[in-house]
Amino acid sequence: MHDLPPSTPKAGEPENAAAEPKAAKTPVSYADAGVDITSGDRAKQRIKMLARKTFNKQVLSEIGGFGGLFALDLVKFPEPVLVSSADGVGTKLKVAFELGIHHTVGADLVNHCVNDIAVQGATPLFFLDYLATGKLENDVVETVVRGLSEACKANGCALIGGETAQMPGFYADGEYDLAGTIIGAVNRPDIITGAGIEIGDVLLGLPSNGLHTNGYSLARKLLFEVAGYGPDQYVNELKDKTGAALMRTHRSYLSVIKKLTAGGLVAGMAHITGGGITENLPRILPKGMDAVVDLASWTVPPLFEHLRELGSVTEEEMMRTFNMGIGLIAVIPAEKITKAKAILNRANERHCILGRIVRGTRKVVYN
């Protein structure tokens, strides 16, 4: 007589009898599941010290509470409107992982978010970050947060809290995700939306520092898969190593924006991020207007030209994927452009006249 298979109930047992659960022979901890609380606590202590360097008298709480407390200065903002933005670094992180460079991605994140609210006339107040990883590597976390802290301080923004999450099995070893939220304020009469843009206004462009934080999926495919470059390989067409060209920090335009807005010179501003000029500039155009952009008005940096060549990428695709060397566009009334250019020249800020506002249907027209 053969033994019954395990799935077949023995005589006298109900057919739906459940298997006896197996218990662990020794106690199982959270660390056994991949989450090291003790290591996380050590990381939080380091983060606390770095964040404190960004605090000002408006910060009323310490890192580690359930929420960050910030007192709005009602003397500086008597008619306050809060402006917020949230973003991430995207697949630029893949390059950071491969190169082991983690100190710049924090600045990328902060500066991106700062620009997004500064183009609406807002002053950054405080920042919250979110870093999630599979296995917590304290040195990496500290390096990332140091970058966040330094960028916050440079932009006059307090890093008042955030979250560092350990999620084993969700992220590959050595990888993490990084996102952040910024809160700023502007007095209601000083909000810049683009509503005041008029026919004949001038488009003034400010240079980017490379890809910033957009278009990396296509750039990585072209450079690493199509061309077969290594991240440490020097490429003549780029005049740099591939990884270094890709890791250039997303610049902050806050200081130059403040100079232009202080003089009441700006009718609207667009931060050129994902979607390029093609999709970002129309976001501030009033109904019945187009932006005419002269493609010959600036020199496209070598990185973008080489990407175009490697993939035989169309002009249309390039212009709606990358910033093409223009990171910010300010719309200036024609009668104020001379003064705006003088301010930029005194600040040693490179700039170019990209085109003008004409009648149209809220789109960008390239010449």
Rank of each mutant, 00 (worst) to 15 (best):
I272P: 06
V331P: 04
P168D: 10
L254G: 07
I272A: 04
D41M: 09
L136R: 00
P231M: 14
V256G: 05
E20V: 05
P286L: 12
Q233F: 01
K92T: 08
G205W: 02
L69C: 03
A296M: 10
H103N: 14
E349T: 10
G12Q: 13
D232H: 15
K76D: 13
K241M: 12
K94W: 13
H212K: 09
A291N: 12
Y176N: 03
I337W: 05
L128H: 14
L204M: 06
K259E: 14
N56G: 14
M319N: 11
N111R: 01
D240G: 02
L204A: 03
N187W: 10
L285S: 07
K258H: 13
K10W: 13
K48V: 06
T213C: 08
I284Q: 05
L246N: 08
G200L: 04
V144F: 06
V144M: 05
L354N: 07
E237I: 03
G90Q: 10
G67D: 06
N187G: 10
T278W: 04
G194H: 02
L265T: 08
P14H: 09
D173A: 15
E15Y: 10
H212D: 09
A296I: 04
I182P: 13
G274S: 11
E309H: 06
I353Q: 12
L260D: 03
P302A: 11
P333G: 06
I183W: 05
E142F: 05
S149H: 03
R248N: 13
E15Q: 14
W298I: 01
H250K: 07
P124T: 02
N367L: 12
T91K: 13
K259T: 13
P21R: 13
D32L: 00
H112T: 15
D116C: 13
G106S: 07
P231E: 11
T361P: 05
